[in-house]
Design a protein around this nucleic acid. Sequence first.
RNA 1: GGAGGGUUGCCCGAGUGGCUAAAGGGGACGGGCUGUAAACCCGUUGGCGUUUGCCUACGAUGGUUCGAAUCCAUCACCCUCCA
Length: 442
Amino acid sequence: MSTNFQSSVLRELAWRDRIDATTHTELDELLGKESVVLYAGFDPTADSLHIGNLVVMMGLAFYQRHGHKPLMIAGGATGRIGDPSGKATERELMSVEKIEHNIACHSAQLRTILDRAVHMHPENLGDGAGEAWDTPVLNNYDWLRDWTFLDFLRDIGKHFRVNTMIAKDSVKNRLTEREQGLSFTEFSYMLIQGFDFYHLREHHSCQLQIGGSDQWGNITAGTELIRRKMGVPAFGMTMPLLLDSAGNKFGKTAAGAIWLDPARTSPYAFYQYWINRDDADVEKLFKTFTFLSQDEITALCAQIEDGSNRGQVQQRLAYEITWLVHGKDEADMAVRASRMLFGERIEGLDDKALASLFAEVPSAEVSRDALAAGINILDLLVDTGLQPSKGAARRLVQQGGGYVNNERVDADTTVTHDHLASESMLVLRAGKKKYLVVKTVG
RNA sequence: GGAGGGUUGCCCGAGUGGCUAAAGGGGACGGGCUGUAAACCCGUUGGCGUUUGCCUACGAUGGUUCGAAUCCAUCACCCUCCA
């Protein structure tokens, strides 16, 4: 694949390593001379998108920052079937209500994030940017629901060759796995997705579909259908799926996926996820998820190389992405909470500030009277559930892992009202990262 | 149906009568170094009290013994070989 693209968007995506494959070389020419409508689809499998989806959203964002016009499809119809691509087993079918709910949630997320994306780092916007474009989110159920099975077979199905379909990786892999097989429903998935593209080509002048590299088969199904039925070109581009340096999929932790919905993954947890990325992955993440320029990214990564960064690079990464997904205010809050949660002495706060900074942290209650009388630190650690037994609590404190308001304490410490960090709360910490907010009540 | 081997703490695994709350390794946890990274170093790792102490624990139950993870019996489960 040539990297000497004439269109500014492909040049940018190329240096960011965001291009896995494109269907036709004429795409570059087209993107270079006009503003192109493009789309990507999102599966409504959950009521929130996660950072795996963010990879594709970034693709749309880069296009828009170069003056192209993204559409998004929330797969109300396709979600009912389930994409077999990259899936080892057949997906469970979801109820209509659940899908509708998920689409509504996705739609809001997609629009806010894409809107932020075009306003961040205006100095790095590409050619032709600036024209207002309020990204529509469409539901493919709207144009698929009225088809009858017979009409669909006659008008759409006849353009698909089974030989070709079987040859696609997403299908082939499942067919060779005799254990799993592939239902006809799933097999038909690419017809539906192909038809979506055709519909968008016809009604929205959409000429390009982008997606993860596992979407290649589905995307080409669409470009071929358009060619056959309309006799006009249509293009596809896939983006490499993100793997970390250990070869795992990005965005999964022991605790589960990293979601874009703050109710599922709080902005603080989201921010922390990025802070904790391995050095080896940082460059790739900057290229994929931020709008910083090539020079800025090179300079930041050079700091990791020469060790002069003092830990600032991951913080910058985390800040940029949190800003994009949750907004600047939430990103600033995450930075402040992180300072408090990583060592800075906790004092002089009011209840409200403390509660919001430690929103992530579990809490326990202690009676006002008991605190007035004084509670031994070991008992407090056990009573609040931060330590499982008194022996463990003693061990912890003796080893220097017990903290009140981020001040190390010894085993003789009696906790009283003097330890309150705000009107009614104080913060216990066990080891480096385990925090607990103690609230006084009664 | 016959012969033999096994079952130990979160996991693996040593231990064949007292010095065994049980070697060693992994994991986990705490500390140090550092950048909230990786690597590395030190420490901790049944419960309760902590200065010596008490309780509970080596598949289950019962027994021998001053004393058992270690010996005996029965039961349960696992493995190997022969039919």
